[in-house]
Structure formats: structure tokens, C-alpha cells
Amino acid sequence: MKKLTILGVTGSIGTQTLDVIRSDIKNFIIIGISANTNYEKIIPIIEEFKPKYVAMMDEEASLKLKKHCALKKYPTEILHGLDGLNYISTLPEVDLVVTSVVGMIGLVPTIKAINSGKDIALANKETLVAAGELVMEAAKKNNVNILPVDSEHGAIFQCLQGNKLENVNKIIITASGGPFRGKSRQELIGIRPEDAIKHPKWNMGKKISVDSSTLMNKGLEVIEAHWLFGVDYENIQVVVHPQSVIHSMVEYIDGSIIAQMSSTDMRLPIQYAINYPKRNIAVIDKLDFYNMSSLTFEKPDSDTFKCLKLALKAGKMGGNMPAIMNAANEVAVALFLDYKIKYLQIEDIIEKCMDKFDHNIKPNLEEILDVDLKVREYVKNNYDKE
């Protein structure tokens, strides 16, 4: 029986992780969970799964939840802030930490969990984007598995099983193309937040949906793949596949290509990660090839969607540049969702920050966190206008 901590339990990945656990409840115990501010969503989770610990990022939310638990005489201990996340990520009894929080907030708890010997089911892109070298070094040192939850990296992980990395020629990461595939730069000028969060295939949170629409999501995934699988950037290819049936592929040196195919349901990569190395009975709808008309592939339009090009540039520069790029993108997307900047300003802000902040080729964790904070402050001070 695996004992889990789930960071970001009320988000898209967190709630789908709970679905997977419900389907196989006898094999899992949830020890700790975290959320940001929505304590009301946490209450039924406490009642159903009875975790020992809950960490709320927001102090007021933690106080309200603590009051509710005292009234109901629940034994759950309520914590708050980053200290709370770190605590539930390093509990001695926990085997696996599912990091499904969005943004840089997941970096420190993930590293602390790794240093405590916990396997990681990783759904937090920013952890590897901002500090991939540090994270993978810590995982190797502590003999920890980093199990990818992203559909693309979960697919690559499955395609690599039973094969040697030295026999890999190329990793092929597929992209749906997002809701604006085929549009021109001119057509992107008036895009609104409500347009950008309408993903054609996947059920995702708002931030990730916007990243998908700008193709930033694919750029982040390329950087992740570089660190997860130790493959050079020149050997990672992005291919637009609108049907989202093939989730990624691995090409071997003999020309063979192994692809992972399934319905567009995040519960599969979640299930594979938290059960690894075994497979369980399907929790998703299975593919029906008789009703599948065609599978098509295109080259991504990185001239129209410049975020992909910027992310690849940051990844190849390495050091602290991916952290700079990521911080600028996070704040810019938040400002766009709040109607404070225009859609195409997201890429402008990222490019400006990549030019403005000094490139440190070998940053430590403190330096990564410091530049992350400085970039966020710069973007907010210059673009967060009422």
C-alpha cells in the first residue's frame, strides 16, 4: 500500500488523482494534502480520505479550516504556508509525493521531498524548467524516481521502457496546436482570456490552458524532457498533432518509432505514475480504431506563436535563463487572465525579461529563487496597472 502526499489537491491534476485513487482505494493511503485558498473544497476531501495533514497556502483559509475541523472533531492537523507544504512533503511515512501545484511554488517542496528520499509523481512543469539540473542531481544522489505525470512525458516514459537510452535517436513531443492553431498574428491581437482557456482537447487549469494556446506549454515540455530523459535539445522535436491521440513518440537509432496512444484523459498518466512499475485496470475510455478517421501531423508555427521559440532559446542557454523565462511567463499569463495586458504582450514581456536580467550559467537554488522573485517584481511593477 502506497502512502501519498498530494500537493495541489483541488486543482485539475489533483482532483483527477483523487479519481484514480478512488478506483483502487485499497492500495493507497493519503497522508497529506495541500491547497491554496479554497478550504471549502478541502472539507469533503477530508471527510472522504481522512488525511492526517492539510496545508493551506493562505493563512486565513487555514484558520477557517482549522475551526471547521475542531467543530467536527476531525483529527486532521491543519498547517499553512510554504512551511506547511514542506512539512507534508517530507513526512517519514510518505512514499510518494504528487506535485500538482501550478507554478514555482512547487520547487522547494519537491526538492525537500527528494532530499527526504521520496519518489515524485511530477505534474509541476516549473520545477524542472527552473531548476532541472539541481532537481535531477538531487534525485540521482538520493536514488529517487521522478515519475512524469504530464501526458507527453508520461508517454515518452512508457515508450522508453525496456530500451536503452543510448539507442534513442530522437524524442517527438506532440502538441494539439491549441485553440488558435492556424491563426495569423493579426488574428491573435484581440484574443481574450475566455477564448484562450477553451482548449480543444484537454481539461486543464486556466494557466496551463493559456500556455497551451501560446505554445509556451510545448516549450516548457521540451525543457522538461531534456532534464527528465537526458536528451539533447537538438534531438527533441515538437510535432503538432491536432487529434491528440498520440501523446508522444520515441525514435530509435534503427529508425523504429514507438508511440503511446490513448484517449485524451489525464487519469492515465496519473495512474501509471502513482502505480509504477505496475499497470492497473483502465480508468479511461479505450480507443476505438474503427471510429478513428485520421491522424495528422504538422510543423509548429513558431513565428506566429513566439513563446515556443523563446522557451527553446531559454532552454538552450541554460543556467538561470529558463527560470527568468518561466517567471516572466507566469506573471504575464496571470495579468492577461486579469485583463491587464493583451494576449500578444505575454511574449513581449518574456522577451524583455530574457534580455534584461543577467544570465548566470551555474546558479544554486537560492540564486534561482532570487532571480525568480526579481523578475516577478519587475513585471508586476511595470505591467500590473489598474
Rank of each mutant, 00 (worst) to 15 (best):
V333P: 07
A138C: 13
L344G: 04
A121Q: 05
Y378A: 14
G106Y: 03
L228Q: 11
Q161T: 04
N329H: 07
K125Y: 03
V20A: 06
I105M: 13
L147S: 05
I78D: 09
N86I: 12
L228G: 08
V98D: 03
L344T: 14
D95S: 01
L160M: 13
K52P: 00
D211T: 04
V371S: 02
V222P: 11
V101H: 09
N326W: 04
F289A: 12
K218L: 03
K73C: 08
E93C: 00
F336A: 07
Q186R: 12
V168S: 07
N115E: 15
A123T: 06
S151K: 07
K141N: 15
I105K: 10
L18S: 11
L128K: 05
S262N: 05
L365Q: 10
V238Q: 05
Q161C: 04
V222M: 09
N163H: 15
L335F: 08
K218Q: 10
D254N: 15
I33D: 00
V108P: 03
D195M: 08
L165M: 12
H241G: 05
Y233L: 12
L107C: 07
D288F: 03
V94D: 00
D119M: 02
S209P: 05
L369S: 09
I25H: 04
V97C: 08
D303M: 11
N203D: 14
H226N: 12
K3G: 00
L308G: 01
M317K: 10
I111G: 02
K309G: 04
A282D: 14
D301N: 15
A282T: 14
Q16I: 05
Y276L: 06
N275V: 01
W227F: 14
Q237R: 08
A225E: 10
D254R: 01
K66G: 12
R192M: 11
V375E: 13
S293H: 13
N145M: 12
V331I: 15
